[in-house]
């Protein structure tokens, strides 16, 4: 682990339980790390959330995505764009980046690289669903 990764880990581990995936999306997920979801889901909660809002896999833990969804709406001082990004389709994790500094990968743009066959949504999400 390089110096930057070490510094990032020291800061982000205690606050967000950062798993060092090397491609951080915290700002799009209500400042809640999706890699702490036991299924490491990047695109919202699975269908197994319990009636009390807790996790299917760890019943004692509140669902990471229930928390993320709530925070994406209610956290103060968050730029509006970050809130809007919550519904974006996030691409598959690049497992080669695990352990890397996501700061470094964000600066170089490496964390935005996706497999050549991956296309984002076929059409822009023009309509937000009002629940």
């Amino acid at each position: 682990m390089g110096l930057i990764s070490a510094i990032e880990h020291v800061i982000k581990k205690p606050i967000w339980d950062c798993q060092m995936c090397g491609q951080c999306v915290l700002h799009d997920t209500g400042m809640t790390c999706p890699m702490t979801c036991p299924k490491t889901l990047r695109n919202g909660p699975c269908g197994g959330v319990r009636e009390n809002g807790h996790c299917e896999v760890k019943p004692e833990m509140r669902c990471v995505w229930v928390k993320a969804e709530e925070r994406s709406r209610t956290l103060p001082l968050m730029p509006e764009a970050w809130r809007e990004h919550f519904n974006n389709l996030r691409p598959p994790v690049d497992n080669r980046l695990k352990g890397d500094s996501s700061w470094k990968n964000a600066m170089s743009g490496r964390d935005k690289e996706t497999p050549p066959g991956w296309t984002p949504e076929p059409e822009a999400p023009e309509a937000e669903v009002e629940a």
Binding site: C63, E69, E70, N87
Partner: peptide, 12 residues
Amino acid sequence: THPLDYRAQRAA
């Protein structure tokens, strides 16, 4: 299931 108000957005 929860978050109830978000489920339709996830479907979308």
